[in-house]
Amino acid sequence: MNPTALLQATNLTCERGDRQLFADLSFALEPGEMLQIEGPNGSGKTSLLRILCGLLKANDGNVFWQNDSIDTQRGDYLAQIHYSGHLHGIKLELSPTENLVFASALHGGEPWLSIESALDRVELYGFEDEPAATLSAGQRRRIGLAKMLVSKSRLWILDEPFSTLDTSGTKILEELIEMHLNEGGCAVMASHSRHGIERDRVQLLKLMA
């Protein structure tokens, strides 16, 4: 065990059906560090992320947050994390502003940026009152990014966050992640893309199919 680590996983094993996705997987993340998970489709990247946020039970092994198991402090842990999955969790009938108002109330905690400045940060200003259904896939992904900004969480768990983002969106996300790490946060990201985040704060984890 590493006492200064924020997030720590020990001997994680995951089986789906008869197949073992990964076994005996351990890592520790200190404040300001990011874990990047790579691997072919079906190698268990999403399963690992879902285990880390407690949506899925690992067949074996434990996840620790600040040296306590996440199962014993579930409510406190959930207040500290932000999970962004394949689905953005936004309502198409609602405008970006309405989606963000709900997201920030649901997560609770102290706000990081105001809703206007979060929308401005992801360059959605001018679309704030349009229904999300009229926005493009990349713009919807940007609403997802803005959700990470309206409430403060120390751990970001991101599943393929760069997909559907254009060059400027990619750049915004890189800057946001760097800003988050600079403030002592942690991130776990499943991604294949090359990105401009400083290499020496990124741990790489390769999963085999």
């Binding site: 959930l78 999955g85 394949h86 969790g89």
Partner: peptide, 10 residues
């Protein structure tokens, strides 16, 4: 649309 996941993680 993924909202249920977000509700479960609140």
């Amino acid at each position: 649309d993924g909202s249920l996941e977000q509700l479960a993680l609140s």
